[in-house]
């Protein structure tokens, strides 16, 4: 396929694929007030990148593994209830970031463009990455579809959900797994430092125009897709890193949505 030979179109197709998954999943991240969890998992992905290089496996696999381990650690720490949530998040975030940088600097045989990983690079998306993104993305959407109701129920109130027969721990872990996958899939386009923005910003822009959770998820997906398209075009035109370009477009949607006068 010709179109897949062009790095720009590969990036667009990859970005759109990521946005489609990030919309509905991001809704739960926002509804459940877990954006800092997303950040922590994202920051840990530098360690995942290093691991990927070290073990010579696909970077996405390394990122996914590390992000999920961090999520599990967080889950276990939270159960102890000794430390505040934000302190645990911050500790894990910085520990994994520091470990990632250390590991990369020790691997003197690897030359890697740190900026490209931190902020995304449209040149970085390979054909194999596309398969990963669409395969993984499809899986996430399928799982989300099946678990939509229990996820919504524990978002509303997890005690009530548990009392009415929902296996809260299982759903909770599954949710973390999904976030780890979506972070791994979007790392090349958006970059480590900005990866959660695609989960959070389109959702925040969509809230005002949504009456149901499903509307909000669809609208967030749409805003995400358009942001990716416009952002990548801008990135190509004016030669800027892809992640920040996408984020700026999404933020423009966010401001437009929230500045418009309220209908009474």
């Amino acid at each position: 396929m010709m179109i897949l030979d062009d790095f720009f179109w590969r990036a667009v197709i990859a970005g759109v694929g990521v946005a489609v998954v990030a919309g509905p999943l991001g809704c739960f991240v926002v509804w459940r007030r877990m954006s800092y969890l997303g950040d922590t998992m994202a920051h840990s992905s530098l360690l995942g990148v290093a691991l990927g290089y070290y073990l010579e496996v696909n970077i996405m696999l390394g990122v996914f593994a590390v992000a999920f381990i961090v999520a599990i650690l967080l889950f276990l720490f939270q159960r102890q209830k000794q430390l505040a949530n934000d302190a645990i998040l911050s500790t894990l975030s910085h520990a994994s970031l520091a470990l990632g940088v250390l590991m990369i600097s020790l691997m003197f045989w690897v030359r890697l463009d740190l900026i490209a990983y931190l902020f995304g690079d449209i040149l970085a998306v390979s054909l194999v990455d596309l398969y990963w993104i669409y395969g993984g993305g499809f899986l996430i959407l399928l799982i989300l579809f099946v678990f939509w109701r229990p996820l919504l129920a524990i978002t509303f109130d997890h005690e009530l959900a548990q009392a009415e027969g929902i296996h809260v721990v299982k759903v909770e872990l599954l949710f973390m797994l999904l976030i780890a996958v979506v972070i791994a899939l979007s790392i090349k386009i958006i970059g480590i430092l900005l990866v959660t923005s695609l989960l959070i910003i389109p959702v925040s822009a969509a809230r005002r125009f949504s009456k149901t959770p499903e509307q909000m998820a669809l609208l967030a997906t749409l805003i995400g897709m358009v942001s990716v398209g416009l952002g990548l075009s801008a990135s190509l035109q004016i030669d800027t890193p892809s992640g920040p370009s996408i984020v700026i477009v999404a933020v423009m949607f966010f401001f437009a949505a929230n500045i418009l006068p309220q209908k009474k």
Binding site: V30, T155, F156, E159, E164, K211, T212, P213
Partner: peptide, 25 residues
């Protein structure tokens, strides 16, 4: 068992209507 937990806090960020809550589980 029909259970009514202690006051549930519903964030305005989550667009749920009354009829939707009825069907949540």
């Amino acid at each position: 068992i029909g259970y009514l937990p202690q006051k549930i806090h519903v964030d305005p960020i989550l667009p749920l209507s009354v009829s939707r809550i009825m069907n949540i589980t």
